[in-house]
Design a protein around this nucleic acid. Structure first.
Length: 401
DNA sequence: TTGAATGATTTGGC
DNA sequence: GCCAAATCATTCAA
């Protein structure tokens, strides 16, 4: 992990005895040793406490000589020698020169690797986790997203609140695990970084370790831990996706409408059999009464029309039932003040109009499609095509089309 | 387990 | 954007 940079001899002291061409580490120091020996007037190691330049050079030669022989000594001797070297008065000067050389050569080699842009995949993962309410402040984002998704697809059934709380609790679990793991990684990263920094500081007593080098090392560690975090984020995203598909897929979670809701819809359908196309306003009203969405009302009428048309005979009994029921309601309405919800039809104009009795079979039991509101060509009465400009609703003045 | 019922989605026309 | 028609996917009763 820690690399001793080759000292190439491009430093400021090149040509003055500190040229370290071609060999990393101690080989470089060997060159220093040789060079200094050449320039130390045949230098005699061991001379100390001198005041002129010659003796200074002898000092350097002495230090280098001691460094070169330190590995040949026993551990105790080496420790003692190391201590002596650290206390040597020339040590700081030599050390700073080595640092300077290393800094220059190291920077030129590594500049290209730095300041790399943020990983776009990580950005996407972060955004997604934020949107799902897993990352960032807990504000019910996931649950809100769940509700929004379910509503937009028309899948909000009356008993969906239980499922949402289940979804919410599962999402909360994922969130909790994610944050615990993230915290663990961050803690491990901090601990490891501190450890490495301490090691480097310790090593800096015996080899040149620049602050820049420490910074770079910290950056490398952070990058490594960041890649682990990316994996964690990816797994979390997958878990959220699975959760979403399990809880929020409208098809998967289809629920039959309540009996009362079906009754309301059927009542409207059979009382408007000649033209079973509720206006936007009527759909909204029906949706309100049934506790479903407008799009669900549209779906229901779409399905009902097509299924009714395909098999009128099958729906005959149902049609009669609702026709009689509504007629009865209308008659009661004549006798007493009309109660909008008495038949489940709310404020609709279920006036026992002609539509109503189109569904009642003739006495002889025969039933024509015309009487059922369907023309021979398969179109509904008053509705030649979906794009007809006039309102298809015989008893509803509005037409949102 | 099976088949009918039913709500949702897709496709194509207008 | 709404609708018809076909289809899918799930629920539910036998």
């Amino acid at each position: 992990m820690l690399q001793q940079q080759p000292l190439t001899g491009n430093g400021p002291s090149n040509g003055r005895g500190l040229g370290m061409s071609g060999h990393p580490g101690m080989h470089g120091l060997n060159s220093v040793h040789e060079a200094s020996q050449h320039r130390s007037d045949g230098g005699n190691p061991g001379l100390e406490g001198t005041e002129n330049g010659h003796e200074t050079r002898r000092d350097i030669g002495d230090i280098l000589q001691q460094i070169m022989t330190i590995t040949d000594q026993s551990l105790d001797e080496a420790q003692a020698k190391k201590h002596a070297l650290n206390c040597h008065r020339m040590k700081p000067a030599l050390f700073s020169v080595l640092c300077e050389i290393k800094e220059k050569t190291g920077l030129s080699m590594r500049n290209a690797q730095e300041d790399e842009p943020q990983d776009p995949q990580l950005v996407r993962l972060d955004n997604m986790l934020l949107a799902e309410g897993v990352a960032g402040p807990e504000k019910g984002g996931g649950a809100a997203a769940a509700v929004s998704a379910a509503t937009s697809s028309g899948g909000m059934s009356p008993d969906s609140s239980l499922e949402h709380s289940d979804y919410k609790s599962k999402l909360s679990q994922i969130r909790s695990i994610y944050h615990t793991e993230l915290e663990k990684y961050e803690q491990a990263c901090t601990e490891f970084t501190t450890h490495v920094m301490n090691l480097l500081r310790e090593q800096s007593r015996t080899r040149p370790v620049t602050p820049r080098e420490i910074e770079r090392m910290v950056a490398i560690i952070h990058r490594k831990f960041s890649s682990i975090q990316t994996q964690l984020k990816q797994s979390t995203c997958e878990a959220v996706m699975i959760l979403r598909s399990r809880f929020l897929d409208a098809r998967r979670k289809r629920r039959n409408f309540s009996k009362q809701a079906t009754e309301v819809l059927n009542e409207y359908f059979y009382s408007h059999l000649s033209n079973p196309y509720p206006s936007e306003e009527a759909k909204e009203e029906l949706a309100k009464q049934c506790g479903i969405t407008v799009s669900q009302v549209s779906n229901w009428f779409g399905n009902k029309r097509i299924r009714y048309k395909k098999n009128i005979g099958k729906f005959q009994e149902e049609a009669n039932l609702y026709a009689m029921k509504t007629a009865l309601g209308a008659r009661q309405g004549d006798d007493s003040p009309h109660t909008p919800n008495s038949t489940g039809s709310g404020s609709f104009s279920l006036s026992g109009s002609a539509d109503l009795f189109l569904g009642v079979p003739p006495v002889n039991g025969e039933q024509s499609t015309y009487q059922m509101g369907l023309q021979a060509n398969g179109n509904w009465q008053g509705r030649n095509s979906p794009r007809s400009g006039n309102s298809p609703h015989s008893d509803q003045s509005d037409n949102s089309d």
